[in-house]
């Protein structure tokens, strides 16, 4: 048959349970097996009804002396048995739908399957905007708590705004890539992800300074800072890539790792200020924090000095090396 006619069997919620493409017209519907559309419904007669094509090309439903009858479920003309593409009709307790080739089909949607809860929630632009504003306030608070040599709005606001600007630029790049791959920018989601990551960075840095302050270990401080920073960067890259989305989960992991390594490499390069003048400078940074001094476990002066004895060996070793 040239013409494409499909009968869809729907379940109670209106979802398609079965699709039958009609091979010929008239097509017969019923419980018996010789029908074109066989239904499993005890209220359907063995040979219940037929779908015919009129001379005008219209499709009509013909009741074949069924026990419970047929009914076309359209609002336009109740009682009529004409079937237009998309019309539903009831046979027994089963709802069927007739569609033809011209029936419009919705475009395919993007897979939301890999998004975590946070990314999914950030689709709500109000929530995303709230996240951005909250981040700005946190940056400003961080600036305020560290400002002791001047007061006022500008010294607090400008670094926070500059930070936000940088994040905006970073997110812009991601949104641009997003647009290239999916015809959507999704800018606000990228920006809110970046802001969340920046807030986490602020906490990680604070945390590592507190660790160094309380435990007097420069290594501990550097380690927590580095690990926290690296983990946050990795998660941020993964989030950006999930928003886009970038093919499979494995691909995303690889890209996220690559991006994190690149960023860490760049950061190390930038923080390297050249061979330090360690002969004149004291190469140590001892942070003092506002909280947690009661957690410090001090030793006696003697114990501290004994622990420092390795410095002598180091200095003697340095003296052996050529300057």
């Amino acid at each position: 048959m040239e013409r494409v006619i499909v009968v869809e069997v729907l379940d109670r919620r209106g979802r398609v349970r079965e699709r039958v493409r009609l091979e010929r017209l008239p097509a017969f519907v019923g419980r018996a097996y010789m029908n074109d559309v066989v239904l499993e419904d005890r209220f359907v007669s063995p040979r219940h009804c037929a779908i015919r094509e009129k001379e005008s090309g219209e499709m009509v439903l013909e009741d074949l002396d069924s026990l419970n009858g047929v009914r076309v479920l359209t609002d336009s003309s109740p009682g009529s048995l004409t079937l237009r593409s998309g019309d539903r009709f009831r046979v027994g307790e089963t709802i069927l739908r007739l569609v033809d080739a011209a029936h419009p089909v919705a475009p395919a949607e993007l897979l939301p399957a890999d998004e975590g809860g946070v990314l999914h929630a950030l689709r709500d632009s109000r929530l995303a905007l709230a996240v951005v504003v909250a981040s700005l306030l946190i940056f400003a608070l961080d600036e305020y708590l560290a400002l002791y040599y001047e007061t006022g709005f500008m010294p607090v606001a400008s670094p926070a705004l500059l930070g936000l600007g940088a994040l905006g630029l970073w997110s812009g790049i991601w949104a641009f890539v997003n647009r290239l791959l999916t015809h959507r920018f999704d800018y606000l989601r990228h920006l809110s992800c970046a802001c969340l990551a920046a807030v986490v960075y602020v906490f990680v840095e604070s945390f590592s300074e507190y660790a160094e302050f309380i435990f007097s270990s420069e290594r501990l401080g550097s380690a927590t800072g580095f690990i926290g920073g690296a983990a946050t960067t990795y998660v941020l890259f993964s989030a950006h890539l999930a928003v886009i989305p970038a093919s499979t989960r494995r691909h995303r992991r690889v890209w996220a790792l690559g991006g994190t390594s690149l960023l860490l490499g760049l950061a190390s390069l930038l923080s390297y200020s050249g061979p330090e003048d360690l002969v004149a400078e004291i190469p140590v940074r001892v942070p003092i924090k506002a909280l947690g001094s009661s957690l410090i476990l001090p030793e006696t002066t003697s114990e501290f000095l004994v622990a420092a004895r390795f410095l002598r060996e180091q200095a003697d070793e340095d003296a052996e090396d050529e300057p």
């Binding site: 302050f213 007097s216 270990s217 420069e218 360690l278 002969v279 400078e281 004291i282 190469p283 140590v284 001892v286 003092i288 001094s293 410090i296 476990l297 001090p298 030793e299 006696t300 002066t301 501290f304 622990a307 420092a308 390795f310 410095l311 180091q314 200095a315 340095d318 003296a319």
Partner: peptide
């Protein structure tokens, strides 16, 4: 040679120092 340092916390006569 370059300076080498060690950090810690000490308590003397009831005062805690970094």
């Amino acid at each position: 040679t370059p300076f080498r340092c060690h950090t810690g916390a000490v308590r003397e006569q009831g005062i805690t120092f970094k």
